[in-house]
Design a binder for these strands. Structure first.
Length: 532
RNA sequence: CGCGGGAUAGAGCAGCCCGGUAGCUCGUCAGGCUCAUAACCUGAAGGUCAGUGGUUCAAAUCCACUUCCCGCAACCA
């Protein structure tokens, strides 16, 4: 079996409800997965949730429920949102899964046995209320500890550490020899720079059970649980069937078919140090060879009014007219789940930051989706019904404009593949909308609504209609990775269904055969107008 | 001299790697069309490409410096 295309997302922390940032990343990865499938390659898409840790434990206590119950509630919110937005991973991570815990413990035991994990003590300022050590970053401008920390005292604690520093030179070498380890390239530069002045610092991987009980116990010391890194990051391999000799591997894929990962899709906030330093070094320490290192795709953030997205600042945003707020559900309520998917992927150039504004959301929806694409289908089906009784027939009629339209459509797949080499989905979408514009222009220039007045022009009218309808059929397939529901709705109106396993290579002119009967026109994207 | 990104028509962006008198979408103004979700198509106005200096026959594009904006700053044990 050929190696599958393996794509993952960061796993989201189950401490609060999903917001637009979580949503973008999952929609991006989902569209990437669907696109790669459209090229004919098998794909395994993994996503999920990080459920352990201090904050979850505290939030659960505050809510007065056991952590399991708290985590379940938040997890279900993520699951419901992904379902609504057609984010469909093949594998689903929940770090409380026993299959995951077994792999984590096995890895830790291996590293402990090899002497890569050791115990040492640390002393520092400790906030009793927040149950955590503080550092200088947490101080107020005047150097004092803020009231949110409560009583701060000096405390000493023993913990387990992973010998991260022992592998720093190896990582520097890897970054030099594999310049495409991280995309976009400037992120790799940033990482290399960040490592220049790195000192010999090791990674703390544990917490005493007395402080943190909601986690995976260390296999070699029952007094501690695993702290974040060896729990969360390991999901990428534990749920990929790594070390699947354990008794229960039900539902897990075959490791040999997946690894190495083709794209760890993450936000720029967790590249350094987690995914850029800890993760490759962990893999290296575990014996993963250099040519089996994963690829990392770093995406940007959504800004609101030019500033970083933050809950406290949302209130200062200029008033919205039709959106309730920028919650993913609120946006989908107005422009639909595909409208939201389209906006997120059309608006952001993969790897960079973008602004999130109501104006842009409505523009993308009303102008591009409703006016250009939706209206194209609508006007065409309407004319086909009037002039052709909705039946496609063969004619010899042809001219330069027909040829030009066919050429544009024929070039779409290869252009899309080219753009997707750097995951520029926004460019693929721009091509699709541009093609729809060309089809609108084609209609205006050839004017079938005028030709139809004279029966002698019947072949020309039939040919024009057929060209536009065929174009829309191609567009429906091209746009399906981003708007899966819309693709189906377009096809339903065309009276056509693309085969489930259709690939870009199947997109030859003539998807709709002679005698094909078109369906009824129905506005695809009802306009969203602000209240008067 | 901490690191990275950005500064291009009223707005949002592309072009910069591989120098050759600036492009896309929206908005504005004017026109066309009438099949269509008051949708579609065409044309026009609008920019000395943040600033200064340098390299060059020629710079938005290369180099240096400056200004402003955004984000990050691994050791949260």
């Amino acid at each position: 079996m050929a190696k599958q295309f393996y794509i993952t997302t960061a796993i989201d922390y189950t401490n609060g409800a999903p917001h637009i940032g979580h949503t973008y990343e999952k929609v991006l990865a989902d569209a990437m997965a669907r696109f790669v499938r459209l090229t004919g390659r098998e794909v395994y898409f993994l996503s999920g949730l990080d459920q352990h840790g201090q904050k979850v434990q505290l939030s659960a206590e505050k809510a007065g429920v056991p952590p399991q119950e708290f985590v379940r509630g938040v997890s279900d919110k993520f699951i419901a949102l992904w379902k609504r937005l057609n984010v469909q991973p093949d594998g689903w991570v929940e770090t409380t899964d026993p299959r995951h815990q077994r792999v984590v413990q096995s890895l830790l035991q291996q590293l402990f046995d090899e002497g890569q994990i050791y115990k040492k003590s640390f002393s520092g300022s400790y906030s009793v209320r927040q149950e955590q050590f503080l550092n200088d970053k947490d101080r107020e401008p005047d150097g004092s500890w803020g009231p949110q920390w409560g009583l701060v005292e000096e405390r000493e604690e023993e913990n387990y550490y992973f010998r991260l520093s022992a592998h720093a030179d190896w990582l520097r070498g890897l970054l030099e020899s594999q310049p495409d380890f991280i995309f976009p390239a400037n992120r790799q530069t940033q990482l290399v720079n960040a490592m220049k002045d790195s000192e010999g610092v090791d990674l703390c991987i544990s917490r005493p059970v007395s402080r943190l009980s909601w986690g995976i116990p260390l296999p070699f010391d029952a007094g501690y649980v695993t702290f974040v890194w060896f729990d969360a990051l390991v999901n990428y391999i534990s749920f990929a069937g790594f070390r699947d000799a354990s008794p229960d591997t039900s539902g897990l894929p075959k490791w040999e078919n997946l690894w190495p990962c083709d794209a760890h899709v993450i936000g720029k906030d967790i590249l350094i140090p987690a995914h850029g330093i800890y993760w490759p070094i962990m893999l290296h320490a575990l014996g993963v060879p250099d040519d089996q290192m994963p690829k990392i795709l770093v995406h940007g953030f959504w800004n609101i009014d030019g500033r970083k997205f933050s809950k406290s600042e949302v209130a200062e945003v200029k008033p919205l007219t039709v959106l309730k707020d920028f919650d993913p559900h609120s946006i989908a309520d107005v422009v639909g789940s595909d409208g939201l998917r389209y906006f997120l992927l059309a608006e952001m150039k993969t790897g960079q930051d973008s602004d999130l504004t109501e104006e842009r959301i409505l523009f993308r929806y009303n102008k591009e989706l409703a006016d250009i694409l939706g209206n194209l289908l609508h006007r065409t089906l309407n004319m086909a019904r009037k002039y052709l009784n909705s039946v496609l027939v063969a004619t010899d009629h042809d001219c330069e404009m027909h040829q030009a339209l066919r050429a544009t459509v024929a070039a779409l797949p290869s252009r899309a593949v080219e753009h997707m080499r750097e995951w520029q989905i926004s460019e693929v979408l721009a091509d699709i909308i541009s093609t729809a514009r060309q089809a609108n222009e084609f209609i205006d220039k050839t004017a079938p609504f005028k030709l139809a007045k004279d029966p002698a022009n019947a072949p020309a009218v039939a040919s024009i209609m057929r060209h536009v309808v065929e174009t829309v059929a191609h567009l429906s397939v091209m746009i399906s990775p981003v708007m899966p529901d819309t693709a189906k709705r377009i096809q339903a109106q065309l009276g056509w269904t693309a085969p489930d396993n259709i690939t870009l290579g199947d997109l030859k002119w003539g998807l709709l055969p002679d005698g094909h009967i078109l369906g009824e026109p129905q506005p695809l994207f009802p306009k969203v107008l602000p209240p008067a």
